[in-house]
Amino acid sequence: MTADRPTILATSGGYRRGLRVDLEFNLLMHHAVELAQVTGRRPRVTYVGTAGGDSREWNQRFTEAARIAGFDAACLNLFTMPNIDPLEDHLLSQDVVWVGGGSVANLLAVWRVHGLDQLMHRAWQAGVVLGGVSAGSLCWFRGGATDSFGPELQPVTNGLGFLPYGNGVHYDSEEGRRPLIHRMVAAGTLGETHCTDDGVGLVYHDTILIEAVTETAGKNAYIVRAGAGDSVDAVAVEEPLEARLLGGAP
Rank of each mutant, 00 (worst) to 15 (best):
T50A: 12
G52E: 13
Y47V: 10
E57F: 09
M29I: 00
V33N: 00
W58G: 06
V45G: 06
F25L: 05
N26Q: 09
T50K: 09
A36Y: 07
G53A: 05
V38P: 07
G53W: 07
E34W: 04
G49C: 14
R61I: 02
R44C: 03
A36H: 01
W58S: 11
V45W: 09
V45R: 04
G53Q: 03
A32H: 06
G52L: 10
Q60H: 10
N26H: 13
H30P: 05
G52Y: 13
R42Q: 15
S55Q: 02
F25S: 02
G52D: 13
W58Q: 14
G40S: 08
S55H: 00
P43F: 11
R42T: 15
L35K: 00
N26P: 07
Q37M: 11
A36Q: 00
A51E: 01
D54Y: 05
R44P: 02
N26S: 14
G49M: 11
G49L: 13
R56Y: 09
G53L: 03
H30T: 10
V33I: 04
R61T: 03
H31C: 09
F62V: 01
V45K: 08
M29C: 06
E24L: 11
Q37A: 12
H30M: 10
W58K: 13
M29L: 11
Q60L: 11
A51R: 00
T50D: 13
G40D: 09
H31N: 06
D54S: 07
T39L: 08
L27S: 14
W58I: 15
V48E: 04
A32R: 04
H31I: 12
F62C: 00
R56M: 05
H30F: 09
M29A: 10
G52W: 11
G52S: 15
R44K: 12
E34C: 05
W58E: 13
N26G: 11
E34T: 14
G53F: 13
R56T: 15
S55I: 03
H30A: 08
V48T: 08
L27N: 15
F25E: 01
V33L: 01
R42Y: 10
H31L: 04
T39E: 12
L27A: 12
V38H: 05
V33S: 02
A36R: 00
S55L: 02
V38A: 06
M29Q: 08
G40H: 01
R41P: 15
T46Q: 08
Q37C: 11
F62N: 00
V33F: 03
E34N: 12
V48L: 09
T46N: 09
A51I: 00
V38D: 02
N59P: 08
G40M: 03
